[in-house]
């Protein structure tokens, strides 16, 4: 089956997805594959994460604006909110993250900043749903790549959570081991 060439609106969405995946990759790799700490790419990605994240937001805005114009999306209709819920929520999350991606926000929001930026993990699953739902039965050349990428990121995230859960389950046990009363002299 020949896949269609992706139009500009889809290409922008694809670039946004790539950038978004790149922002998640350093942390995921550090926890899932600790040996990658030594390599240069995760370090570079970590350094450029803010810029890449903003790029993801800008591409997503371009994708959204083009589609709103092309498809005549009517926001005065309640059905629109439900039909495009994944895309709208993801764009809202990207907007929040992009707006607070500066030193001033980090300083002002303190620990809330970290909590706020946890939303990026919600966007991961929304994006998977978005690509599957909107491209179902009408794949372009970038659709399989998008699905593989976001699928990998989802998988790495689940793996990471499993490692973290296992680690936190081990920690109290280890603590209790170390806290065993020693024989009195």
């Amino acid at each position: 089956m020949a896949l269609d060439v992706a139009p500009l609106s889809n290409q922008l969405g694809f670039f946004s997805l790539i950038c978004y995946c790149l922002t998640l990759l350093p942390t995921l790799l550090r926890i899932v594959f600790p040996q990658t700490k030594q390599t240069e790419i995760p370090k570079w990605l970590l350094l450029q994460r803010r810029l890449i994240g903003i790029l993801a937001f800008l591409f997503a805005v371009g994708h959204g604006v083009l589609l709103i114009k092309k498809r005549n999306i009517d926001f005065s209709d309640v059905t629109t909110a439900w039909v495009y819920i994944q895309g709208i929520c993801t764009l809202l999350i990207f907007t929040l993250l992009a707006v607070t991606s500066n030193d001033w926000s980090v300083k002002k929001l303190k620990k809330h900043w970290k909590q706020l930026h946890q939303l990026t993990y919600l966007a991961m699953f929304l994006l998977t749903w978005h690509v599957l739902d909107k491209m179902m039965g009408h794949w372009t050349q970038v659709t399989p790549i998008s699905l593989i990428l976001i699928g990998l990121i989802d998988g790495l995230f689940i793996w990471r959570r499993w490692i973290e859960c296992r680690g936190s389950a081990k920690t109290p046990a280890a603590q209790s081991m170390s806290a065993k009363p020693t024989k009195p002299n």
């Binding site: 005065s76 909110a81 999350i93 919600l122």
Partner: peptide, 24 residues
């Protein structure tokens, strides 16, 4: 702090629905 992301998403969805419903 725990519920902040959840609250934000809920507020965004509520706003979205509100904006969509009111005109109709």
């Amino acid at each position: 702090s725990y519920k902040l992301p959840v609250n934000l998403v809920s507020a965004a969805i509520a706003t979205l629905i509100g904006v969509s419903v009111v005109p109709s």
